[in-house]
Nucleic acid binder design. Structure first.
Lengths: 352, 352
DNA sequence: CCCTCTCCTGTAAACGTTTACAGTCGTGGC
DNA sequence: GCCACGACTGTAAACGTTTACAGGAGAGGG
């Protein structure tokens, strides 16, 4: 069975025995299909008595209008697509949840596709979205292949970007994150750290990651701190990571605070530090992007720059739906910016 | 804007300027729409020269067949639905990912709906799934309202349950979980624990949860251990949880090992234990369902019953697609059963 | 009694595909 | 030279909705 993306729906034409269509409802309630349609869409006038009768019949037969027929006729679906760069990353859970909740509340369904960190997979995923004619596309992170998406945007697809806005308005997520980053840098400066290390697996990063590092390093510069990148490499080998980390911590002019670029990376770094017998925060402070119950339960408790992606996603989706339905945005409360949560893992640097 | 689920698609009829349809492709390449369709579906014979010409034109125009028209004609969509009981629970991430990967590889799109732990929301979500005419429905957990879903199943919808199989074949996830549970009980018995506590927020639980407790308690009985439930309550208050936990740990005939019913609950329990100054595993052993990087990074490292939901979901989806496409299952490797990962947090009980 | 106006309803044509059926056009066997 | 046959392609009818348009029925005013 070749995994061919543009195959047609049914292999075998499944019977779908129970499917009831608008005609049956019409017949059963002694009206025309037009009237039934009118009832279902509350759009134009229908006599109250007919309305009730039709509704009753529809309900009895479990009639649900077929989305594909509707979409075909109206050329617009009630589906919004979400493109997630990597579903394995739990960061996207609150995000997805946010999109879900507001979409669902407005009667929209959510089509989730996973790019699996691969440009190729992403392209195919985007094709699926295109074929499904999603009403709008929400990007949960920076796309690997922006060209393809730009194309759709030009073709009239409504796209909202996690780092940019709809169209070319100012960035959302990175802007939200900046206050948290500043607060963290300020706190570290206050504690008299001089060199801080920004730990990530690889040097590459999406647009959001790039801006994160930019915000961090520029704030550090302002404060007279030096910031450097610490690249762990993609090997899962803990001792290798340990070596990388100790090398920056134990050199003559050492890094005294480590900032972990993503929440998912934090446990790995913590294990590596433990393996190297680094005491937190005695030997080195530690901060991570993203918060979680585990970070709060850890010993020592882990300081974090926490961003509420749930409400960011809700906002993005609300905006998209606002455009879609023509109704002005609807919910314009700005989601809270990121905050710095100082906990036990960040403290004064070790005495030299 | 009333959040009405059965509203029709477009508020304002968006232009969708770039949309190219099969007729344009047909015209541009000097054939009929039928031929274009044949080319796109690789179904019946087309002269190689025409095929190439059409493909080239289609590609140049970025033609992608409209899913709704296809679905309407074939009455079958290329979409499979996933009903998640609660997206806030990260347990569903690997699950979703598994469904995604398999579905995507077969050209299917995935529609995710979240029941938000509410029967009402679930019903509306299921209606959406119904309207969207999903080709199959994958349940990521036990539904709150099985009746509604049974109805769809009877109406011909292909449904696969996380705890049951397609139709009424034997259970999948609980069966996978049992070996891990047994191993854990055995290990605790080996260490000479006599009473173990099964910690959850509430007494209620889905079918999978019920079977989890059943497996645990029956195994304990066989081994001569006593197992009891420890209900934390839904209050997020840590000190309250501490009190509940200490009361079972410090009484005359104490529980000496705590098993945490879900992975998401673990950090809370760990905090509560720490707040009560309970030493792990000195004063009490601790095991949780579900594994994560954080559990492995924790100090002490946390023992876990680990189930690979990713492959369970992959399998479920493969089976569903097997039925859908008529082709025999395709991938029949049984996913690995759950394993017990003993780590530092489980050790011998304290001397009486 | 006729006309107009309002309110409600029906008729029928789209929407973009797929596919059964009916060609058309060579080609090769007789 | 005819026929049959195969390979390829076109015609047109569906799929389940929505909606512009037109019509009918009653009410009220003249």
């Amino acid at each position: 069975m070749p995994p061919n993306p543009s195959r047609q729906p049914a292999g075998s034409p499944r019977p779908s025995p129970g499917k009831v269509d608008i005609r049956q409802v019409a017949e059963e309630s002694g009206v025309s299909t037009a009237t039934v349609s009118r009832v279902m869409n509350r759009r134009s006038l229908v006599a109250e008595s007919t309305r009730l009768r039709v509704l009753q019949v529809a309900d009895r037969l479990h009639y649900v209008p077929t989305a594909s027929a509707r979409s075909l006729r109206n050329n617009a679906t009630m589906v919004i697509g979400v493109l997630v760069p990597d579903l394995a990353n739990p960061v996207f859970v609150p995000f997805l949840r946010g999109v879900q909740r507001v979409a669902q509340a407005h009667g929209y369904a959510v089509l989730v596709v996973d790019a699996q960190r691969s440009a190729k997979v992403e392209r195919r995923a985007v094709d699926v979205l295109h074929a499904q004619q999603v009403a709008a596309l929400v990007l949960a992170g920076s796309p690997r292949d922006p060209v393809r998406i730009e194309q759709l945007r030009r073709d009239g697809l409504l796209v909202v970007d996690a780092s940019g806005e709809i169209g070319s308005a100012p960035a959302l997520v990175p802007d939200l994150e900046e206050p948290g980053i500043w607060a963290m840098c300020d706190a570290l400066a206050e504690l008299e750290h001089r060199r801080i290390g920004y730990v990530s697996r690889t040097r590459a990063h999406g647009e959001a990651g790039r801006r994160r590092w930019a915000a961090l390093s520029s704030r550090c510069r302002q404060l007279g701190l030096s910031a450097e990148r610490v690249i762990l490499g993609s090997s899962p080998d803990i001792t290798r990571s340990s070596r990388v980390l100790t090398s920056v911590i134990e050199r003559p002019d050492p890094v005294t605070a480590l900032v972990c670029a993503t929440h998912g990376l934090a446990p790995t770094v913590l294990r590596a530090l433990r393996a190297a017998d680094v005491d937190l925060p005695g030997d080195c402070s530690f901060v991570t992007f993203g918060d979680s119950e585990w970070a709060a339960a850890f010993r020592p408790t882990i300081s974090a720059v926490s961003l509420d992606l749930y409400s960011a996603a809700s906002l993005m989706t609300t905006r998209v739906l606002g455009v879609l339905t023509g109704s002005g945005a609807g919910f314009d409360e700005q989601p809270a910016p990121a905050r710095f949560l100082p906990r036990e893992s960040s403290g004064p640097p070790p005495a030299p």
